[in-house]
Amino acid sequence: MYWQRTLVALGTIARKEAQRYLRIWVQTLLPPAITMALYFVIFGNLIGPRIGPMDGYTYIDFIVPGIIMMAVITNSYSNVVSSFFGAKFQRHVEEILVSPTPNAVILLGYISGGVSRGLLTGFIVTLVSMAFTRIEIHSIPITVSVVFLTSVLFSLGGFINAVFARKFDDISIVPVFILTPLTYLGGVFYSISLLPDFWRMASMANPVLYMVNAFRYGILGASDINIWVAYGLVLMFISILAAFSMYLLNRGVGIRG
């Protein structure tokens, strides 16, 4: 009985979150499709042939996994951060807080919203990329699991950002000043084997590099790093961020007086 009620509560939050981003699809789903199409046109078709092959693949084939992953990361993060902060700002988060919905279900519900938007956006960008190149997936289990875990990880990041955010500026600082540089420097557009030793070592400290490369391995079968290390890191970060999110929810940080 308890589990049935809990599942209904989880389904309600997940549905509400999906309805939110689908209702404003012009702001949520359309922009990544257009932006990523421009990346494919400019970097893939126009500049790509002049760059030549990267790690043995045409440049457009090389950047497709990274660009899909970039869309997944950005959208998973921004969905949760804007939705949860919006709920705090308009105070309708109180609807859930007064209800018996357990904190873990609240977290899972918001994460499910971020993951579903991240995966849907990733799917849309994949469809767009198919207009520019032919995609053959090397390993479906690795591709699907990496994109799913990455989406979970960045949804958690968005949740924590939203918990601490007090004003709208606070929800754009992390994406602009941390997430975007990490993503662009995370091997989306280049192989770290091109970098001098120092910068290659510095890049190894960027967690996004592992996710992009693991995803690239899933699609192309080529990676700059060991994908099992990537799995280990992603799972470790997920565990840490999930535990921290639960701590914040249980303490009521940013949401309870």
Binding site: Q4, T6, A9, T12, K16, S99, P100, T101
Partner: peptide
């Protein structure tokens, strides 16, 4: 939605 949060 409010009903859903209460497991209805």
């Amino acid at each position: 939605n409010q009903a859903g949060y209460y497991g209805i």
